[in-house]
Amino acid sequence: MKTLTDQLAQYATYHRDRRNIATHLVGIPMILLALQVLLSRPVLADAGVPVTPALILTAITALYYLRLDRPLGALMALLMAAGLALAWPLASQSTPLWLWSGLGLFVLGWVIQFVGHFWEGRKPAFADDLMGLVIGPLFVVAEVVFALGGRRALHDAITARAGPLRSGSTVAAQPSADTKTL
């Protein structure tokens, strides 16, 4: 099994434009919530907590994240539990409201993602490795943790493998040949 650094660095190579990462901070949570909404029907059993395909898939994914890294995995489990807490009430609404909310979030989230990849000039990571669909949410949470100053060693290891972030254009400004240095 690949390590956390392996997974995040591989995913990061497709995400070096800051604008693309910004779209992922919005789009990926929308897509994840959409999947939880859509998969919160049917209720397979109810033992105080509705057992749904969303709950089962969320639990499996959380266990995978925990295996990769306990602190980030625990944070992901909490965030995904919050997503389920939002998804269950939506899934219990009328069928049109359930479908429109789930499908609307799903489509809008992907549109936002593809705008980011247009700016990046590169296809999404999942086009080459389906694990990108699982690693995407973890990448977003890790990026927020990094922005808050956490996990510096992990951030540095990912940057060493994937390269530095770009501010927006794919070509960094280069000094002209006739610029003299003092």
Rank of each mutant, 00 (worst) to 15 (best):
V115S: 04
L138M: 12
L38T: 08
V134N: 03
V145F: 07
G48Q: 03
T52A: 03
P29C: 00
A54N: 02
A162F: 06
T179Q: 14
S169T: 11
P124W: 00
L105K: 08
H117A: 05
Q36R: 12
L86H: 01
G163R: 06
R166T: 12
R41S: 11
F106M: 12
G102E: 06
M80Y: 14
L105H: 04
I31H: 01
P42K: 11
P96G: 04
D46K: 02
G168E: 01
V140G: 08
A47R: 10
F118P: 00
V141M: 08
R18Y: 01
R166I: 13
V145P: 06
A91K: 10
V111Y: 07
M30F: 07
Y64M: 13
L35K: 00
L25K: 07
M1G: 08
Q7S: 15
G168M: 04
F146C: 08
L4V: 02
I28A: 12
I135H: 00
R166C: 06
L84M: 04
G136A: 15
S167T: 04
A142T: 11
T181H: 07
D17C: 06
R41Y: 09
L90K: 00
V49S: 00
A172W: 01
Q10C: 03
A81H: 06
F139D: 04
L103R: 01
A82N: 05
W98D: 07
P50H: 09
A9F: 05
L79M: 12
R16E: 10
P89G: 09
F139Y: 15
L32D: 00
L154V: 15
M80H: 09
P175M: 02
R19S: 12
W100G: 02
Y64C: 10
N20C: 15
F118C: 05
G116A: 08
G104S: 07
K180M: 11
A77D: 01
L66A: 11
V37L: 11
P71D: 09
V115H: 07
G136T: 06
F146L: 12
L25A: 15
D128S: 10
L108R: 04
V141T: 13
L57P: 01
A142M: 14
F146V: 02
G149H: 03
I56M: 08
A172L: 13
W88Y: 15
V107E: 07
A22M: 10
R18T: 15
V171T: 09
S40W: 05
Q113V: 03
R19A: 14
P137T: 05
T181P: 06
L99I: 13
S101F: 02
A82W: 09
G109Q: 11
V43L: 03
A177F: 14
I60N: 04
G109M: 07
A47N: 10
D46C: 00
L133F: 14
T13V: 09
A45C: 09
R19W: 12
L33V: 01
L105Y: 01
L165M: 09
V141K: 07
V43S: 08
V107Q: 07
H15E: 11
V51Q: 05
K123R: 15
A74V: 14
R70I: 06
L78E: 04
G136H: 03
D46N: 14
L55P: 09
M131Y: 06
S101W: 04
I60L: 15
L90F: 13
K180Y: 12
T179K: 08
L8C: 05
G48Y: 04
I56Q: 04
K2M: 14
L154I: 09
S169G: 08
W98Y: 15
